[in-house]
Write a protein that binds this DNA or RNA. Structure first.
Lengths: 224, 224
DNA sequence: TAAAATGTACGAACTGGTACGTATGTCAAG
DNA sequence: CTTGACATACGTACCAGTTCGTACATTTTA
């Protein structure tokens, strides 16, 4: 399979120079999704234009409908792809070896850095909320994802309480919400916040300060 | 003027039965804004339809353009009206008589309740962020608004530090962000969060718990 | 040769915006 | 207190551009 792929590519390099077309459905789809992610995350579902996406693609509008059926189908595919992309990152954190407080700090930093690094994702989630999460509800795949985070937090909290480093008995989902809210808001409301307070939330020193701030607040809460 | 008004109304009551038209520009504009707020906050700027707004209005599409010039003009008017509506609520809080900790708790509760009570406003802000706050930037009125909140927080923090109830020296804007993030997120991300974790964030018991939670966290942070 | 992948051109419906005509209110003059 | 004239407020019907989606033709690949 690998040598086959290489052979195909080698030959296509030759034909590409003359004619220019090469059937590569996987790359075509990926290309469409990439462009569509950008379009939808900056203009929303209704504001995003299929023609605009098609133009910036190395293929044509015909292919969008060939692979994704409709504008909504494309949007849903974009959404699922975005969620699938983060699953990998969140999964392989080895937190059970760490002390509860340290484990929580690492988890919070990860969430923080993730949102900071993926504004597209944050905006897509905002857009979904405007649509009452209608598309997410139809997708089985997306829901199963975040459950693991809750389990991780639950185990950290349990250990913390039994070791007497955390005095407060808190609901894992509430804690997750508190962390998410802060990390998400910084990115989702970057523009209105920046416009009102003339503060650039993406400045390195601000990022550093906020990263430790949310951790201190959560841990302070659990120790209160 | 009053008897004249009454007379006018009496006469219109008669003509209304036959014909039905009565010039009332103020009410017409207000009616349009009300409907438009609902439309834009549930569908976004691009997703909102002028025709749909016109239909649910007691007047016609012609009037929308007569008073607001364009779809964007209408959207901007909706945005400004939403901001103007909260100014009144936030302004008259007498916090300087209260102890710092209590003052902060009241302020946080107010923010919390406000966001909870005005999902339309929250969604409009979300929509603005998708548009990079482009419309807010063009509106002088909106920016001046939130400055007072920062001054309020700053004075509370100063008093708290000098009375040694708060040990941490924090930036007022950061504190405001932390409060806003939590209160805002609960409403803005209600749907995706609810869809993933099967939790209704608008349930009374949840609201109660979250309201004290954010206050405890912020105050815990300042005492840490 | 058949199936999958792709390109081109076009259509039909939606949607923001407007041209044109009518009604209402105000106010000064009779 | 009527009248008439002018500005404001309003309604209907319609247009023109946009935008999603597709019919048809063609190429690539197995």
């Amino acid at each position: 399979m690998k040598s086959k792929g290489a052979g195909r590519e080698r030959r296509s390099m030759a034909t590409k120079a003359e004619n220019g077309r090469k059937n590569d459905p996987q790359r075509t789809q990926e290309n469409i999704l990439e462009v569509a992610t950008e379009e939808f995350s900056t203009h929303g579902l209704a504001g995003g234009r299929v023609d605009a996406i098609a133009e910036r693609t190395r293929t044509s509008k015909r292919m969008i409908y060939y692979y994704f059926g409709s504008k909504e189908g494309l949007y849903l595919a974009v959404l699922e792809r975005s969620y699938r992309k983060i699953r990998t990152l969140e999964a392989d954190l080895q937190l059970s070896n760490l002390e509860p407080e340290e484990a929580l700090r690492v988890l919070i930093s990860t969430t923080f850095d993730h949102d900071e690094a993926h504004p597209d994702f944050v905006r897509l989630v905002s857009i979904e909320n405007i649509h009452h999460a209608a598309h997410m509800l139809r997708s089985e795949a997306i829901r199963d994802l975040n459950v693991s985070v809750i389990e991780t937090i639950a185990s950290i909290l349990e250990r913390g309480v039994s070791q007497r480093v955390f005095t407060r008995q808190a609901d894992p989902i509430d804690i997750h919400m508190m962390i998410s809210a802060f990390c998400f808001f910084r990115v989702s409301n970057r523009y209105t916040f920046g416009s009102i307070f003339r503060r650039d939330l993406s400045e390195p020193s601000t990022i550093e300060r906020h990263r430790t701030m949310i951790a201190d607040a959560v841990i302070g809460y659990l120790k209160g």
